[in-house]
């Protein structure tokens, strides 16, 4: 598997580490159901078989966090963008 890093170009997966699927927005600790929301946020996963929006860290390259859309059935990379400066919709 190779990941096309926006800074470094096409690099072997061994240079990166995966943080798993991108979590939903961090809950507000002040909200009424904060306890349940944080358990969901920290522990529960969608874990899809198919396209998965993930966070990867390019530790042996530019040391940037990347948003990677990757198919977990085929390992095909569907899209890569920088995590910094954008929200979860890539904006």
């Amino acid at each position: 598997m190779r990941i096309n890093c926006p800074y470094c170009g096409n690099r072997d997966v061994a240079e990166f580490s995966s943080m798993g699927e991108e979590p939903a927005k961090r809950p507000d600790p002040q909200q009424a159901d904060a306890q349940t929301a944080f358990v969901d946020y920290v522990y529960l996963r969608n874990n899809p078989a198919g396209p998965n929006k993930e966070l990867w860290y390019h530790g042996q390259g530019c040391r940037q966090w990347l948003r990677v859309n990757r198919n977990t059935l085929s390992h095909k990379i569907l899209g890569v963008s920088l995590a910094a400066g954008g929200d979860q919709n890539g904006k």
């Binding site: 798993g20 699927e21 969901d40 522990y43 529960l44 996963r45 969608n46 874990n47 899809p48 078989a49 977990t72």
Partner: peptide, 18 residues
């Protein structure tokens, strides 16, 4: 391996990654 897929069919999520 596929526990999350079955959970999804049942409408719940698990603290698991494959």
């Amino acid at each position: 391996g596929n526990s999350s897929m079955l959970a999804q069919m049942g409408g719940f999520r698990l603290p698991i990654e494959s």
